[in-house]
């Protein structure tokens, strides 16, 4: 097991290095400097600014200096907001995004998991078709459409829930979480249905039934653990998707999270902010992929024993 974890960790390092390097040089290839828009800056001021942001060094020196800063977690100053560091901006935006992603994941796991398991218990009946058709709608209905429609119905016409904001008024987290989680609920419903169907046809389930266990115990104690492995393996990619999905949802509901900062930074050409957030998000995604792989391997007894034997 440890060997597996260590080898996956070692694989993650070159991935992150590639992300940092590619992002760094891509950003430098972008046309225009960050201070071009200010009108007629005095040359001395410009030089001082450039020195402050290390733009007077050669590209390679900037790169090594950036790596040096990164090694102790310093993402540098923001180009757009003088006096604020990228770390501060991320620290302000990320908790909001993380909370949103967490709620969305809960929505996805609870609704998707229940729907998938329920559907798998009576395959090819109405109990299967109805949740799976709803799941199909969830997959085909993009969040950028679902969000506005939910706002229109529940926020404007019915006036039950606030239409925007985050933590300002009670209930304003419900619609964003559903909007972001819906597509993932649909995927998880499909995955858990397929996983459960696969497990339910196995011998050990027949044994459990043969020894007279009630059906709900067969499902909850024996089948769920195996049937949920595909869902757990999907959690890593799902988390990555939720983070980038939050870009749209934060824009729709005007939530001050990292996604909105990122998109604004993209428009403002705030290069250090873009670079810093990319590195931050990439690290996060790599870590989550790793965790979900380890969890899935641990839940699969065959794989676990194989790893233990090594």
């Amino acid at each position: 097991m440890w060997r597996f974890i260590v080898s996956r960790l070692l694989q993650a390092i070159p991935v992150l290095l590639v992300v940092i390097t590619v992002t760094f040089f891509l950003i430098r290839m972008a046309p225009g400097g960050p201070f071009d828009s200010e009108k007629a800056v005095i040359p001395e001021v410009k030089a001082a600014l450039e020195a402050q942001y290390r733009l007077n060094l050669t590209l390679f020196e900037q790169y090594t200096a950036y790596l040096g800063d990164l090694s102790h977690g310093d993402l540098g100053p923001s180009f757009k907001y003088p006096g604020r560091s990228v770390n501060e901006l991320i620290a302000a935006g990320f908790p909001v995004t993380a909370e949103l992603a967490l709620y969305a994941l809960l929505v996805a796991l609870v609704i998707g998991g229940v729907a998938g398991v329920v559907a798998s218990l009576k395959p090819n009946t109405a109990q299967d078709y109805i949740p799976m058709s709803v799941a199909m709608i969830g997959i085909c209905m993009p969040s950028l459409l679902l969000g506005p429609i939910l706002i229109l119905v529940f926020g404007v016409y019915l006036d039950w829930l606030p239409v925007s904001g985050w933590g300002d008024s009670p209930g304003d987290k419900i619609l964003p979480a559903i909007t972001l989680g819906a597509a993932y609920a649909a995927y998880i419903a499909r995955l858990s249905r397929a996983g459960m169907l696969e497990v339910m046809s196995q011998d050990y389930i027949r044994t459990a039934r043969a020894k007279g266990l009630p059906e709900w115990q067969v499902v909850s104690r024996h089948a769920l653990r195996g049937g949920m492995i595909p869902v757990v393996a999907f959690l890593g990619p799902a988390f990555a998707g939720l983070l980038s999905g939050s870009f749209v949802v934060e824009t729709i509901f005007q939530i001050p999270g990292l996604g909105r900062f990122y998109v604004q930074a993209a428009f403002n050409r705030d290069y250090t902010m873009i670079l810093g957030s990319t590195v931050f998000l990439a690290t996060l995604i790599v870590v989550f992929n790793l965790l979900s792989d380890i969890l899935a391997a641990w839940m699969n007894p065959r794989l676990r024993n194989q790893l233990r034997a090594q």
């Binding site: 991935v15 590639v18 891509l26 290839m29 972008a30 990555a240 990122y262 993209a266 050409r269």
Partner: peptide
């Protein structure tokens, strides 16, 4: 392929659109 798989490619596309117009 495995390495590229692990990249946050949505963010990467946004990056490309920012940099190259």
């Amino acid at each position: 392929v495995d390495i590229i798989y692990a990249l946050p490619f949505m963010i990467f596309i946004i990056l490309l659109m920012v940099v190259f117009g």
